[in-house]
């Protein structure tokens, strides 16, 4: 186990973490501002990936694909908010879970109806394909490096927007006291639609970015959705900062656990048993992390008490 391998795995963990952040940011904003549990967030991730694959396939331009992923997911988010989600704010969480679960089924079968049952093709653009050599002689895929950069840029942009802009103040105010800001003359319905579309756009971006290195297929969003929920529980529901720290923590824990736990067990038991025990434990690791965080901070790392 060389230092180079450790550094490469840390980069992998970071990349995984920022992807989770893009998903979790929207989820936590929507929960924080509107108090809504949105299970269909994974479907918006899928819509982003399909839009990117369709447009990139038709035009040959990956950037156009990315832009249309953002647009399609945001538009779909706004439509869903206006037609379905809006009716759910006053209902209890069980109704929200049921309704957004129905949305998952509708989106999945609708996507299959439009695009068919076979996975679509979306590849990284030529100018980002292949590995780059980092200082220290580490070969690392250029595209993954680009994902890390985009992820950090989006995070910085979100922090700036929430902390420094008028709309950010409205969002924070909406989290704290929604009646009050409505009374102050802010159009709360428009704010909700905007926040929902923003969260959807981030999920769509994540879907498009990941679609290029994974497979674009129906149902791709649900496994990520579960991880995104783990992230916001660890980070504290409603907190963007918590989502960021939680996502990076989860990405690193999962990646490093997967790669080094079997090796660690290999020092005390025979290789095939170590592989079995190590990989079993590695897949539990993030949930153990979540449980540990909840024991010490029941509201998550940055949750309000």
């Amino acid at each position: 186990m060389s230092l180079l391998l450790v550094i490469e795995q840390v980069l992998n963990g970071l990349q995984f973490g920022v992807m989770l952040f893009l998903m979790a940011a929207g989820l936590t904003l929507i929960f924080g501002v509107m108090g809504l549990i949105n299970l269909a967030h994974g479907s918006l991730y899928m819509i982003g990936a399909f839009a990117a694959a369709a447009v990139a396939g038709a035009t040959g331009s990956f950037l156009l694909g990315l832009i249309s992923a953002l647009a399609a997911a945001a538009a779909m988010g706004a439509i869903v908010e206006l037609t379905v989600i809006r009716r759910l704010y006053k209902r209890d969480h069980l109704d929200q879970v049921l309704a957004t679960f129905a949305l998952i089924l509708i989106f999945s079968e609708g996507t299959r109806w439009v695009f068919g049952s076979f996975p679509l093709y979306l590849d990284v653009p030529n100018w980002l394909s292949g590995p780059v050599t980092l200082p220290g002689g580490i070969e690392y895929p250029a595209y993954r490096l680009a994902i890390i950069v985009v992820g950090f840029a989006v995070a910085a942009g979100l922090f700036w927007m929430i902390g420094r802009t008028r709309i950010g103040i409205q969002i924070r105010a909406g989290e704290t006291d929604r009646e009050m800001i409505a009374a102050l003359g802010i159009d709360i319905d428009r704010l909700y639609t905007l926040v929902f579309a923003l969260g959807a756009a981030l999920a769509g971006l994540a879907g498009a970015l990941v679609g290029a290195i994974q497979s674009v297929q129906v149902g791709m969003g649900e496994p990520v959705l579960i991880l995104a929920f783990v992230v916001i529980v660890i980070g504290g529901i409603g907190s963007i900062k918590g989502a960021f720290i939680g996502a990076i923590l989860l990405g690193l824990t999962d990646t490093l656990g997967r790669s080094f736990l079997p090796v660690l067990f290999g020092t005390v038991m025979d290789p095939s048993a170590a592989t079995a025990v190590g990989s079993a434990l590695a897949s539990m690791l993030i949930y153990i992390l979540m449980a540990a965080v909840l024991i010490y901070r029941p509201t998550g790392l940055f949750g309000r008490v």
């Binding site: 186990m1 060389s2 180079l4 391998l5 490469e8 795995q9 992998n12 990349q15 995984f16 070969e139 895929p141 993954r144 990941v210 290195i213 994974q214 497979s215 791709m220 496994p223 990646t255 997967r258 790669s259």
Partner: peptide
């Protein structure tokens, strides 16, 4: 769906 960690191990 992400095999970066495994591919790094293969490389090493």
């Amino acid at each position: 769906t992400d095999y970066a960690a495994e591919i790094a191990q293969i490389r090493a």
